[in-house]
Design a protein around this nucleic acid. Sequence first.
DNA 1: TAATCTATATCACGTTCCGATATCGGAAAA
DNA 2: TTTTCCGATATCGGAACGTGATATAGATTA
Lengths: 99, 99
Amino acid sequence: MLREFFLGFIKIHILHHAAKGPVYGLWLIEELGRHGYKLSPGTLYPVLHRLQEEKLLKTYQENVGGKIRKYYRTTSKGTRALSSIREKILELVGEITES
Amino acid sequence: MLREFFLGFIKIHILHHAAKGPVYGLWLIEELGRHGYKLSPGTLYPVLHRLQEEKLLKTYQENVGGKIRKYYRTTSKGTRALSSIREKILELVGEITES
DNA sequence: TAATCTATATCACGTTCCGATATCGGAAAA
DNA sequence: TTTTCCGATATCGGAACGTGATATAGATTA
């Protein structure tokens, strides 16, 4: 319940984290979990793939301790998208916290 | 594009407005349009019905100038949901606007 | 009685969500 | 070397959601 309100937040978090540094699937699941957003791999991976298709994220693989990881980072388009999303959020916050 | 990030915001706006006073479909479409969120009736009405099913909104009909309007207001559950969403947004904003 | 206006409702189809399950690739154990 | 295990990514199938287009309905105007 209330999931439909928060799914967008989750995606924004993903963009945000991927703008700060490389992230990968399992780490995101744990990190978002720490913020109270539970999401399953069946939700996350398709989201990552879509964001990549939309050229908001780019990816590269790395072998870490023998396991292959796919790291994601924002593209410049993704960074720009994030800024415009940030603006919209501030606007929203301004509106829904005014008397 | 970027729609998937904003859809949640739209729903929050709806809750917010319905918490401040009675709202109805067409008015919401116009109001949200003013904020740069375009949405068609095919999106809005199902959302209103769902929120009503989830008992976040309640509705009543009124005859206004001969036309029947369905006004929506938040229930107390809806008001509580809105508060918790507000908290989450502030948390999100805090996180994505910090260095 | 037809056309118009405001407003809500629904249809059909594609997309997304999501738990469950499968798969992968390398390391270590056997 | 092959089997087992583990971190990690991928996919499946059904349900839910999103959306433009279209329908419906009542009142007013022509």
